[in-house]
Amino acid sequence: MAHIPEGVLSAPVLITGALVTTAAVAYAIRKLDYERLPQAAVLAACFFVASLVAVPAGPSSVHLLLNGLMGLMLGWLAVPALLVALLLQAVFFGFGGLLVLGVNCLNIALPALLSYYLVSPWLNKALLANNRRQLFMSGMVAGAIGVAGTGALVCLALVLTGPQYLAAGKIILVTYLPLLVVESLITGAIVGFVAKVAPELLQRQLPQPLVAEESHATN
């Protein structure tokens, strides 16, 4: 539901979205060194696969966005990673389109960055204190920021196109509510799990050790 189809939005909205996304991706790409390329790619693939999973929520099911978590784990690199995942979804699954890609990327990447800036410091503190409750809570908030932010931005894009979309935007916001609940709970569980199993993945600005001895021919 986070993908606005082609042909709905007006030209100014499309162009603004494309320009802002281009600028953000250009900035993030400058930061992406070749050391972290596999990491970003594998995480982008991981989030793509996670978005295919239908999670039961009440009478129907939802597909996770996980952009809040992606922001926590990748920071600025979440922007190009999301762009790639969204391009694949547009071209091969028909979600969104080529010209609306900029807006869709912005709608999903901006909340990811927001959760990175707002939640990461809190998460780091919780990791240091090894406080299970705080860890779960910070994950929950990151998930909630991701979904609520995306919902609000989708709505905003529609309303900026024309006031006649206000009613549709409100309905779409309501459809985000079950996702908001499920995603924040699941993100909380994910953060709790990762903090227990591999806490180094969540720590920000911690150099990732490159273990050359572990390289296998299967890669």
Binding site: E35, P38, Q39, A41, V42, L43, A45, C46, V49, A50, V53, V55, P56, L64, L66, M73, V182, L185, I186, T187, G188, A189, I190, V191, G192, F193, V194, V197, A198, L201, Q208, P209, L210, V211, A212, E213, E214, S215, H216, A217, N219
Partner: peptide, 26 residues
């Protein structure tokens, strides 16, 4: 269910990152 899915995705993430490190090394 939701907690189990969280653990499933968490495991997927952890294994992905391990894989990413092996790829970097390779």
């Amino acid at each position: 269910t939701w907690r189990s899915y969280g653990h499933l995705l968490g495991m997927l993430l952890v294994r992905s990152m391990e894989r990413a490190q092996r790829i970097s090394g390779a």
